[in-house]
C-alpha cells in the first residue's frame, strides 16, 4: 500500500518512478527507497518529504517553522493513528478528531495544499470508501475536505473518485 501511494505521489509531483522495496516492521510493512546518491531512505513520511524536495516543490512542506511542524505532525498522525486504527472505535476517534479539526479549515495546514493533505487523503481513502451516506454526513467537515482534495488537480491518481451528496438527506442533530 505505502509503495503504491509513493508511486502515486511521484506522478502527482511529476517525478520518475524510484526503486522501492518493503521492510517488515511489526505487523505491517515499511517502504524503502533506494536513492541514487547516498543511503536508502526508510519510512513513508521521510520518503514523501524527500520526493517533494526532489521535485522542488518545498512549498508542499509548509513555508514557516510553524507550518512545517504542523505538516510533519499530521504526517506522523497519519502513520501513527490513521494507519494503526484497528477497531471501529479507533476509526471513529480518528474521524471525530479530524472532523473537529477541519471545522474551520480548507486545508490541513496553512492556506494552501500541503503534503499533509495528500498523505491523509491517501490514508483515509479506504476508510471513507467504507462509510455509509449517513456516516459521511456525520463527519461533514472530513467529507467536505476529502471531496475538495480528491478533485484537486493531480492528487487522486489511480484511486476511485468517491461520491458525496451535496445536500443533507438525513435530519441534522443540530
Amino acid at each position: 500500500m505505502a509503495v503504491k501511494e509513493l508511486v502515486a505521489l511521484e506522478k502527482c509531483l511529476g517525478l520518475n518512478s524510484g526503486k522501492y522495496s518493503s521492510r517488515a516492521q511489526g505487523a505491517g510493512k515499511i517502504p524503502v527507497l533506494q536513492t541514487n546518491k547516498g543511503p536508502s531512505l526508510v519510512g513513508l513520511s521521510t520518503i514523501a518529504s524527500h520526493l517533494v524536495k526532489e521535485a522542488k516543490k518545498e512549498e508542499l512542506l509548509g513555508s514557516t517553522a510553524e507550518e512545517k511542524a504542523i505538516v510533519q505532525q499530521w504526517l506522523e498522525y497519519r502513520i501513527s493513528y490513521i494507519d494503526r486504527a484497528s477497531s471501529k472505535e479507533d476509526i471513529r476517534n480518528v474521524l471525530n478528531d479530524l472532523n473537529h479539526y477541519l471545522k474551520d479549515k480548507v486545508f490541513v495546514a496553512g492556506n494552501t495544499v500541503t503534503l499533509a493533505d495528500i498523505l491523509i487523503y491517501y490514508g483515509l481513502h479506504p476508510v471513507i470508501t467504507g462509510l455509509s451516506v449517513q456516516e459521511k454526513e456525520t463527519y461533514i467537515n472530513v467529507s467536505r475536505w476529502f471531496s475538495h482534495i480528491q478533485n484537486y488537480p493531480g492528487i487522486r491518481q489511480h484511486l476511485p473518485s468517491l461520491v458525496f451528496i451535496k445536500n443533507r438527506i438525513y435530519a441534522s442533530n443540530h
Binding site: G43, K68, Q72, Q73
Partner: peptide, 25 residues
C-alpha cells in the same frame, strides 16, 4: 521539531528518518 526549526535549523532527510523511526518503532 518546531522548537528546532524556529531556532533557524533545518531538518534533513536523515533526521526525518530518525523522527519517523522513533514514532513508529
Amino acid at each position: 521539531r518546531y522548537f528546532y526549526l524556529s531556532s533557524g535549523h533545518d531538518v534533513c532527510n536523515l533526521s526525518n528518518q530518525w523522527l519517523e523511526w522513533e514514532a513508529v518503532e
